[in-house]
Nucleic acid binder design. Structure first.
Length: 483
RNA sequence: CGGGGUGUGGCGCAGCUUGGUAGCGCGCCUGCUUUGGGAGCAGGAGGUCCCCGGUUCGAAUCCGGGCACCCCGACCA
């Protein structure tokens, strides 16, 4: 592949990073552009990554008592307009259906940009008593937002996600739920995707349209820009009031439930590429790699092939039986060298090379994608060796990413210092912040935003002046340039 | 919505300035030789040159209009 960018491309070379990213997406066959502007196809290899993400998240959500359901794609326009902040936030991004069956509709329908409204309309029917609470719903769905500027996986008009919607009897319960999900996401992203995250809550202006508070996870991409990895909102009683969802509590008093919503999306595939990718292409963490091991048989003549095949099959079966996702590349129209590069581009964590020499020595060559080291391993202990290496790759990718974050995290006490730190080293900058609208506008002029306010009170505590206006700060938080 | 760019076999491009009826690389097909880091040779298939209109004996090329997509910035997972 003809990448001209390295992973740690920074300021001034953003364009190269962007080109590298798109090249990688297309060449690794994760996604492709379509006839529809701003919409992409997720190709089988990319979709397989999404399915692995889904499996983990779905299992964890069910384990914490959530149930899957499915709500309609089309929502009456009037629903979106019921919650004031919500409509303000989403109106510019709506696609509206005005005709059906050749007739103009009496009420336009919007293609869901998110499903709060249609779900709350149903909850108003389903919830009557505190005994009906909590409601813990999740749906896997597509949503549509008419984005101006799109980029594969990171921002497309239509995207796939999981959206959770819950309703509770008390504020405390809803807040606990929102935080429970935040922790679940953090575990998912760190343990499965091997991406370190910074967790916190959003400022007033950055929070979800219609939420009381928004919790967030932020990660640094390979160009030191931050990316929001997912969100968990405490919606308060905003939506239950807008949709007149009520219940009778233990004392027979009527009240509005407290609710949450939360989501992670196919954007995470983009994050995977931008955090772990290198000049050779993708580097997938084993836990979400469609193929964890690829076997490349090597032969010259037919006799060699016959000699190699039984060992290839033995190794494949041994690994498959041990639960390893393994692929054998028997293509004979391309050379081994081509296959090496091809699978490296696709990010397969381990490659096993098996040729006549290996059959003779009863060993195989194992190459790691993350470090590109090659070692010889005896066939007898191959399963254990592969498990050990897969764990090592998973751990190393996280460690590398964590080192990158550490190298791109700094702090600033003055405005000039902040401006300098945003460029060198770039990434996260910790500052004292007053939490005023004016200061956020000033920060926006530097192309940066407040990414997250620490949840931990001690961590968030500040005694100094705001880095922007000099008035006493409300907290210490993390700012960054972001996607 | 502003700025920039591009539309020519499947993909990437050249040709356009100075009109003469389309070429290169990759890929694809067939055969032989190859195969431990992106194979070689030979043969072959494949194009309404984005669309509409104009100028001209003749338009990928010149003129006018339109469309589409990509990239960069402000909003967003």
């Amino acid at each position: 592949m003809t990448t001209e960018a390295e992973t740690d491309v920074q300021d001034g070379r953003d364009e190269a990073f962007s080109k590298w990213y798109i090249d990688t997406v297309l060449k690794a066959e994760l996604a492709d552009y379509t006839a529809v502007r701003g919409s992409m196809v997720i190709r089988p290899y990319g979709y397989a990554i999404w399915e692995l993400m889904q499996q983990y998240v779905d299992r964890e959500l069910k384990a914490t008592g959530h149930q899957n359901a499915y709500f309609p794609l089309l929502i009456p326009l009037s629903f979106i307009q019921k919650e004031a902040e919500h409509v303000e936030g989403f109106a510019p991004q709506l696609a509206v259906v005005t005709h059906g069956g050749g007739e103009e509709l009496t009420e336009p329908l919007v293609v869901r940009p998110t499903s709060e409204t249609i779900i709350y309309d149903m909850l108003s029917k389903w919830i009557e008593s505190y005994r009906d609470l909590p409601v813990l719903l999740n749906q896997w769905a597509n949503v549509l937002r008419w984005e101006i500027r799109t980029r594969p996986f990171l921002r497309t008009a239509e995207f796939l996600w999981q959206e959770g919607h819950t309703a509770h009897a008390t504020f405390e319960e809803a807040d606990e739920e929102a935080l429970l999900i935040l922790k679940l996401y953090v575990r998912f992203i760190q343990d499965e995707l091997a991406i370190p995250v910074y967790q916190g809550r959003k400022t007033e202006s950055e929070k979800f349209a219609g939420a009381l508070s928004t919790f967030t996870m932020e990660s640094l991409m390979g160009d030191a820009k931050a990316l929001q990895m997912g969100t968990s909102h405490n919606l308060g009683q905003n939506f239950s009031k807008a949709f007149d969802v009520t219940f009778l509590d233990r004392e027979g008093k009527r009240d509005y439930p407290w609710s949450t919503s939360w989501a992670v999306t196919t954007r995470l595939i983009g994050a995977l590429i931008m955090v772990h990718g290198d000049a050779k292409g993708l580097r997938l963490p084993p836990r979400v790699a469609p193929y964890q091991v690829v076997i490349v048989p090597i032969w010259r003549k037919d006799e060699d092939r016959d000699k190699v095949e039984p060992l290839v099959e033995d190794v494949r079966h041994a690994l498959g039986d041990a639960g390893v996702r393994v692929k054998t590349d028997w293509r004979d129209q391309v050379t081994p060298g081509f296959k090496f590069n091809d699978w490296e581009l696709r990010g397969v964590p381990l490659r096993i090379e098996i040729g006549p020499r290996d059959v003779d020595s009863e060993s195989v060559v194992i190459a790691r994608r993350d470090t590109r080291e090659k070692t010889h391993a005896p066939v007898s202990g191959i399963v254990d060796e592969v498990h050990t290496l897969l764990e090592a790759v998973q751990a190393n990718l996280f460690a590398e990413a964590a080192r990158y974050v550490a190298a791109h995290t700094s702090s600033a006490d003055t405005w000039d210092e902040l401006r300098e730190r945003l460029i060198d080293p770039g990434g996260f900058v910790t500052v004292n912040w007053c939490d005023s609208k004016e200061c956020e506008i000033a920060l926006a002029a530097e192309k940066a935003t407040v990414r997250a306010i620490p949840l931990d009170d001690r961590e968030a505590a500040s005694s100094g002046p705001c880095v922007c206006c000099g008035r006493p700060a409300s907290f210490r938080c993390v700012v960054a340039r972001s996607y």
